[in-house]
């Protein structure tokens, strides 16, 4: 393919992606008076006077961030040790595990919800109706993505030999996990975490059908009364997801050049990035209320 053709294709594709975003930005910058541009709509978001009308939206953001963190933690805590164990001890079971983890991608969200509704009847009775409980359903939907991300890293590293080397050098199993396995799979773990966060932030169907409030359902609701605010928040969510994807890329290339700080203690900047802006309050409070 010639360079010119490649550039042309790139430009067309870039335009296709860029146009809606530019349109969204343009939309939010329109002056309320109807002529000219201004930052009025952006300022309105931070205006304490209007806080009431956006409360639902802020709650949606908080819920989604909470869900992103809880889902990522849940998926990683369950999936990483399982996959490591299977690949080291029962490699023949890997295909079974893969099948189980990939299945959710073949199930349409609507089918999932029809099945989930009665399940959540039970979940709410047992665990309460806290926001975080939705993470159980989200965990299932992100399983295929998280599995793939981890599997790529797992099959690229000869973890079995590294583990055995560590053990002959005097490392007990818990220390092997923290000093060898997690640092070796850091890329996969980070990628799985980022993808989980991105998927959870974009989720609408399940939350909507189970009557939960998250970023997407709140956006839809707000857009009915205040389309400007909805578009602004959509833009911010897009920016956030884009930053996450950039981070994945950075982590990947840094590792292959071997310039990462080698301390195995430095785990994921992902959990840090996702956790810091997240007011984790809603989950415990709503649970305490019940």
């Amino acid at each position: 393919m010639s360079v010119a053709l490649r550039r042309l294709l790139l430009a067309v594709v870039g335009l296709v992606f860029l146009l809606p975003i530019v349109a969204m930005v343009e939309f939010t910058l329109r002056s309320p008076s109807g002529s000219g541009y201004g930052l009025d709509h952006w300022a309105a978001i931070l205006d304490p006077e209007r806080e009431r009308s956006y409360r639902n939206l802020f709650e949606g953001v908080a819920n989604s961030l909470t869900l992103a963190v809880v889902t990522a933690a849940l998926v990683l805590v369950l999936l990483v040790p399982t996959m490591v164990l299977v690949s080291l001890r029962y490699p023949r079971l890997m295909r079974v595990l893969e099948f189980v983890c990939i299945v959710p991608i073949t199930v349409p969200a609507i089918v999932l919800v029809v099945g989930l509704a009665p399940v959540y009847g039970v979940v709410v009775r047992v665990a309460g109706g806290g926001t975080w409980t939705l993470a159980l359903a989200y965990g299932v939907t992100v399983l295929p993505f998280a599995f793939r991300a981890l599997q790529t890293d797992l099959s690229a590293s000869n973890l079995a030999t590294l583990t055995e080397a560590a053990r002959t050098l005097g490392a007990s199993w818990p220390r092997v996990m923290t000093t060898v396995i997690v640092p070796t799979l850091r890329r996969g773990i980070l990628a799985a975490a980022f993808i989980t966060v991105a998927v959870v932030l974009g989720e609408y169907t399940i939350a909507s059908l189970l009557n939960r409030v998250n970023l997407q359902t709140a956006l839809v609701q707000v857009s009915r009364s205040d389309p400007y605010a909805a578009v602004i928040f959509a833009l911010l969510a897009l920016l956030f997801a884009f930053t996450l994807l950039l981070l994945i890329g950075r982590v990947g290339t840094a590792r292959s050049r071997g310039v990462l700080p080698a301390s195995p203690g430095s785990v994921s900047p992902a959990s840090g990035a996702a956790a810091s802006p997240a007011p984790v309050a809603p989950a415990p409070t709503s649970k305490a209320v019940r």
Partner: peptide
Amino acid sequence: PTHRRDVGMVFQSYSLFPHLTVRQNVEFG
């Protein structure tokens, strides 16, 4: 268990920890 047998082992396939420098690898034990 292996980690208390006090053996040193060199494997057929390369087995250096990829996230550690040479010095950190040697210091591991």
